[in-house]
Design a protein around this nucleic acid. Structure first.
Lengths: 338, 338
DNA sequence: CTGTTAGCGCTTTCAA
DNA sequence: TTGAAAGCGCTAACAG
């Protein structure tokens, strides 16, 4: 475990017969180095396989050449985003550091903690995924993706939640459903509010009143959605369709329906939101509103790189279109024996 | 952009009326601090929302409390793994840093470069995903997942490639296929060799010879698989089934089949390997060999944490079972008009 | 063009 | 129990 040790800049300097700062110049691509020296240093770097320590580099220098993606935890949702960020990274020359604070990632304030922990020294800029709060006065450029709060002056990338929810609801209306329930997300989350708003708008557009009993809060999570889903469905006048605020809660609806002996889509139609990979694997495959997660990731990286270059991005508030994906969890309502 | 600046340890020290080293002790949970002082410092930390810089901490101290996952790039494959690592992170108290060197991630030697760049100072241990090479003499504990090389003494986690390939091939044989082709990965990759070996073993077990013309190298990637897939299929005596070395190349087979007017599974059966989320989204949904990627990620984290604690993990070579997932890309061969 | 000096934010002796 | 001094690996001034 002791080995020859990591190769440090001093090792390269010694091998090339120059001083450490000279090596630093070569590594940093700065000029002021004689061609001959440069060649010698470069040879030593190659031979020793030297690679600057990101930690030390970021600590002393003004830049680390890395962009951080800060997450509460790694999920399918964040993974799609990450792939998008990775895609856009291509020619920028930046490295990617995805950071999750671990167990305390779930705790409130993880955004600020993570930002303090790796911002400034380790990464030159950060992309915050689904943050709940974020302070405006950060040292480094920050872009937030799918924020859980309303408009601020922080550059933002998000899916069109209202339009998506309208599309989902109108899809159900178009199939002939009238008793449509909504399993909402969380009242304190902006995306959730928007989706509910879209639902209500579409219902109102169809001249339908929304019975308070047909809206429940599922909290965006599978575990917390089971009970409210049951409340929605375990009634004589149960809805013929449910629009769930995201795929996770839609899956909970599917489970509850199954438990109640309801067939989907024959007895109950279900629409989700997000189009996570697992929504296609659900039984039956879920009709859902796709957020362009990958594009959102790419867009966030592009914005943050603009900011890094001192350029103002084209928009500080980018809303990408959502799109209904038809699968097998929706159908016209069964004729009731009224 | 200038703001109040990041909160440093010195700020906390000033606020609490103590010296920097004392704050360091409190932050590090070391003892030798009077209860009253401790309380005062802790209060200052909370009030200022202080969070130690991972960079500085790792640079000076012996540990950073973070585990790194080093990747060539972010893909569905790595994402599944990452979720598994994230799952197992739970109570360990470690933080997770996923690092991809960006554009040069594809270049050979990314493993060593990444390890130099963030190993030692930023992370206490590393999990290398699908590395091609790796030096044995690392400074920090390293576990490799799904390595592209043969047995070494480095702790390893991988799926059972041979058994998976045998299962895939026997599935096709069981359906009645006799002319089965194999779209291999890359000859220099261990997992690829194992899958081909499993294919040949199963064929031999059925008393079938493998025609050299029915094995082509696809290179594990969609783009590089199209041409060889075409060679395999665009022949009068084309195979009735193809076992592709991974899902990406299986999708390429699907595309080529479609282009040739072959229906899957009526005219051609296709089996993949990996069970990436997109395999279920393929048209038709792909029958494939599932690698327990999530479990592999969790296992890797557990091993690396064992190593970190100075304990020898139960095994240095963990092989997790693979499993055939039946979907819609396989069926008995059509009766030929021979 | 090159090397010396200083110091990023933190932890580690070690003396007070 | 506390703090002063030193230094992790690197970059930014400046001097030579």
């Amino acid at each position: 475990m002791d080995g020859p040790g990591r190769v440090r800049m001093a090792d390269v300097a010694r091998a090339a017969g120059v001083s450490v700062p000279t090596v630093s110049k070569v590594v940093g691509g700065r000029d002021g180095v004689a061609p001959a020296t440069l060649a010698r240093v470069q040879a030593a770097i190659d031979e020793l396989g030297y690679q600057a320590s990101l930690g030390a580099q970021g600590l002393r220098g003004r830049r680390s050449n890395a962009v951080g993606v800060l997450l509460a935890e790694f999920t399918s949702f964040t993974n799609e985003l990450l792939m998008g960020v990775s895609d856009a990274l291509g020619e920028t020359g930046y490295e990617l550091l995805a950071y999750s604070g671990g167990a305390n990632g779930g705790a409130v304030g993880w955004e600020r903690r993570s930002l303090s922990r790796i911002g400034g020294t380790l990464v030159d800029a950060a992309i915050l995924v689904t943050p709940t709060v974020v302070s405006t006065d950060t040292q480094i450029p920050v872009v937030v993706v799918d924020p859980h709060f309303g408009p601020t002056d922080i550059p933002t990338v998000e899916g069109d939640n209202v339009a998506g929810a309208v599309a989902a609801t109108e899809h159900l209306l178009g199939l002939g459903h009238r008793r449509i329930a909504h399993l909402a997300g969380r009242e304190d989350l902006e995306s959730s509010r928007r989706r509910e708003q879209g639902f209500r708008t579409a219902m109102a557009g169809a001249g339908l009143a929304v019975d308070p009993a047909s809206v429940r809060v599922g909290g965006y999570r599978r575990e917390t959605s089971t009970a409210p889903a049951l409340e929605l469905l375990d009634r004589p006048d149960r809805p013929t369709a449910v629009f769930a605020a995201n795929d996770e809660s839609a899956v909970a609806v599917l489970e509850v329906a199954h438990r109640l002996g309801l067939r989907v889509p024959e007895d109950l139609s279900v629409v989700g939101f997000d189009n996570l990979p697992e929504s296609a694997l659900a039984d039956p495959p879920l009709t859902t509103v796709a957020q362009p997660l990958r594009e959102m990731g790419s867009a966030a990286l592009t914005m943050v790189v603009d900011l890094l270059r001192g350029e103002e991005p084209p928009t500080r508030r980018l809303t990408l279109p959502t799109r209904l994906v038809h699968r097998s969890s929706t159908a016209p309502p069964a004729r009731t024996a009224h």
